[in-house]
Simulated assay, not measured.
Amino acid sequence: MIPSSKWSLHRFFAKHPVIRKYLPPTALYQESLLDAYLRQYDTVYIKPCSTHMGKGIMKVWKQEGGYALVKERGQTVFAPSLEALKERIGQSAGESKHIIQKGIPLSEVNGRPYDIRVMMMRNGAGKWQYAGMLAKVAGADSVITNVARGGGYVTTVRHALQQSRAVPPENVKKLIRELIDLSYQVCTHFNKYKHSSQIGIDWAVDKQGNLALIEVNFDFPSHGLFAKLSDKTYYRTIKRLRSQYLALRARRRRKKPASSR
């Protein structure tokens, strides 16, 4: 079994000829890489390999006279030198492994960045099926879009795209279709990594309307996010598909003893 971490998942999806084009430059964090990443990119993120829900994510960027660092929704910390920055990161990171990743200039709704969660479920036939999508808008002064930890909110993808003007209105439908098609490819490829019956895929839309794959949530992706939308259609679809798949799994279990005799 491949260890389930952000780094192992990045390497796994980097093998896919289509999906790898949507992966931001990423490496296993080492202090020696920090200078190169900050010289090449305006902003970088440092993320724990084994946590979810935005926990422990740090945003780092250059500013006049040094560097700035903020963790989740914490206070911005100033570091006057690269060595001081490394020390700050080391204090926050502890002994756990992290990745370092190019920061994506996310498109914004009213000055707040957002990303898009696409929910994919196995249906009553055990096949992957698109169940819905929404936009997760970051909370005030938060560097993460996770709604629970970052104090943000959810809205429809169409509303977020229209408000942010990330893509022209006539291209919104095309982008949504692309998100769905790519999410099917993510799930099909993921079958080679580990079995899962529900996957929440987080996509970034940058200020030029380009997509990037942020994270693949395959253990317990939140259904409750979709209940926060005023239109409960996606939420009901997710619950219906989940019930159908669990019923299929129960039938398969009941048949196992008979087939083994």
Rank of each mutant, 00 (worst) to 15 (best):
residue 51 T to Q: 13
residue 232 K to D: 09
residue 248 L to K: 09
residue 176 I to G: 08
residue 187 C to Y: 01
residue 228 K to I: 09
residue 72 E to N: 06
residue 164 S to V: 08
residue 140 A to H: 12
residue 37 Y to R: 15
residue 149 R to V: 01
residue 150 G to Y: 01
residue 235 Y to S: 05
residue 242 R to A: 00
residue 40 Q to N: 07
residue 139 G to C: 02
residue 42 D to N: 11
residue 131 A to Y: 01
residue 39 R to A: 03
residue 211 L to E: 11
residue 126 G to S: 04
residue 74 G to F: 00
residue 105 P to E: 08
residue 165 R to L: 04
residue 57 I to P: 06
residue 79 A to G: 13
residue 196 S to C: 09
residue 177 R to A: 10
residue 112 R to T: 06
residue 56 G to Y: 00
residue 258 A to V: 12
residue 62 K to L: 03
residue 59 K to D: 02
residue 190 F to H: 15
residue 136 K to A: 00
residue 56 G to I: 05
residue 178 E to A: 05
residue 171 N to D: 13
residue 260 S to F: 03
residue 119 M to Y: 02
residue 122 R to E: 02
residue 14 A to T: 09
residue 130 Y to L: 02
residue 14 A to P: 12
residue 218 F to G: 07
residue 239 K to C: 10
residue 137 V to W: 02
residue 7 W to P: 11
residue 256 K to R: 15
residue 109 V to I: 11
residue 28 L to R: 14
residue 23 L to R: 11
residue 79 A to M: 09
residue 8 S to H: 09
residue 247 A to D: 15
residue 54 G to R: 00
residue 72 E to C: 01
residue 35 D to H: 04
residue 45 Y to H: 04
residue 73 R to Q: 14
residue 20 R to G: 03
residue 140 A to R: 09
residue 34 L to F: 03
residue 158 R to I: 09
residue 150 G to I: 04
residue 147 V to A: 04
residue 112 R to K: 07
residue 21 K to Y: 07
residue 91 Q to E: 12
residue 222 S to V: 13
residue 57 I to H: 00
residue 9 L to P: 11
residue 194 K to S: 11
residue 18 V to S: 14
residue 138 A to L: 01
residue 175 L to M: 14
residue 46 I to S: 00
residue 163 Q to A: 12
residue 141 D to W: 06
residue 234 Y to P: 15
residue 29 Y to C: 01
residue 84 A to G: 10
residue 51 T to K: 12
residue 135 A to W: 03
residue 118 V to H: 02
residue 114 Y to P: 11
residue 152 G to V: 06
residue 124 G to S: 12
residue 54 G to A: 01
residue 142 S to V: 04
residue 43 T to K: 08
residue 181 D to T: 13
residue 25 P to Y: 01
residue 131 A to P: 13
residue 249 R to H: 10
residue 207 K to T: 13
residue 178 E to K: 12
residue 129 Q to Y: 05
residue 160 A to N: 12
residue 152 G to Y: 01
residue 160 A to M: 07
residue 71 K to F: 00
residue 224 G to M: 09
residue 221 P to H: 03
residue 227 A to K: 15
residue 202 D to K: 11
residue 57 I to D: 01
residue 86 K to N: 14
residue 71 K to D: 00
residue 222 S to T: 13
residue 86 K to T: 15
residue 10 H to A: 02
residue 65 G to T: 13
